[in-house]
Design a protein around this nucleic acid. Sequence first.
DNA 1: TGGCGTGATTTTGCATGCAAAATGAGAGTA
DNA 2: TACTCTCATTTTGCATGCAAAATCACGCCA
Lengths: 231, 231
Amino acid sequence: MRVAMNRIPPQKMNATEQAYSIIRNNILTGKLAEGERLTETRLSGDLGLSRTPIREAIGRLIMEGFIDRQQGYTTRVAHFPQDEAEQVFEIRRLAECYSVERAARLATPEDIAELRRIHAAMKADTPPRDDAAYQRLTEANEAFHRTIVNAARSPRLTALMTTALDVSMVVRTYSMFSDKDLMRSLNHHEEIIQAIEARAPKWAASIMSAHLLAGAARVSERAAKPDPAKE
Amino acid sequence: MRVAMNRIPPQKMNATEQAYSIIRNNILTGKLAEGERLTETRLSGDLGLSRTPIREAIGRLIMEGFIDRQQGYTTRVAHFPQDEAEQVFEIRRLAECYSVERAARLATPEDIAELRRIHAAMKADTPPRDDAAYQRLTEANEAFHRTIVNAARSPRLTALMTTALDVSMVVRTYSMFSDKDLMRSLNHHEEIIQAIEARAPKWAASIMSAHLLAGAARVSERAAKPDPAKE
DNA sequence: TGGCGTGATTTTGCATGCAAAATGAGAGTA
DNA sequence: TACTCTCATTTTGCATGCAAAATCACGCCA
């Protein structure tokens, strides 16, 4: 990393969380290149923090597989397979379907009301008129999915989804979708809520699966650059 | 936690990993009770370490959802739903099936040889003659599954399975299985290897699923005891 | 009794210091 | 040149210190 690492300090967080989120982001965006060696001292200099929070952040990222510790004192940005994003997406899809199945059984009226509230907000912004609307839509979408995961009442699942299977690893924004895509997505959300209200786990899971696969199809379509080979 | 926490120091690890693994274990076994408040100072006293490694361990356990940070300076052992184990098991099953699908496509001859080697060792110990054999069997079984996950060539998946979905959260030992169970399990392993050799992802996934569900059925059968109140 | 300030104490967050281990550069030898 | 051995430097692991924030105990007042 010769060029300065992106170190926008995300709102008010303590130093450890900042370090974690900045380093993670810089790995995800490639600003910290695969295989690049990391030292606590350099990172602490770059981020303007002491080594302690950097150490904690690195330790977590090692656990999550973003950073590798070689034999001794050598620490490097992990090397990712090309299909990393698809893999994460696929595992996430399995986990989300499982979540919504549980949510269909366990959601409280409050959970459902919350989903309806978020859904209404998204509806009001679809189709989005400006960048702010895209931004709101992206955030509301994340909130929608997060609410479902929470409704599954599984702390483990929640932890999984917010770290190892974080959306930021797959898609970051709604801005790549057409209005038609967004309408379909909205309808999916509507139907997911209905399935949860109907206490129909399989229905909910099926729609959720379709919902995610539809999004993925769109993403990989857009990403269709030269890239031959592959199934 | 009034009684002394179990602090068997697991082989040669650095202080942070020791702290992580000891605290995690004591949570899993209930020696650190749900909802119990944790302070760095007390833990560091109990484990004979300074606060630094304790802090790092706690940070990781919070990320994984074993420990909760309440609003301010209050940190507690997370509260687990009764069906926690089943949930973890179910998510793990999904992830393992996905792993073996990928493994069936991506496994190298070396991976397969390794699986055969482990399988042969397990065969030699089935049925197990003594406790040592049970111990070896348990470890070989973990190695078998770990080898498959590695063969899936997905660092993210590997990280997931070794932390959030760690087997220790579901079943810890083979000693609850009958000889007949163990034979069936061994046959599953054999067939999984065959499916991988045949490059048949779906076959591999199906057997894997059966393999895990068979084990789970046995576990929940045995677990069907009165279970009075809790401490 | 019950609720609410208020100050002492505890607890965390982070920086820093130091020792042990690992890395890397350079000299010496075949 | 290629290899290895040695030693200076770097790097990590951990303990400790200190300030800011939160918790807790206690007394006051209604």
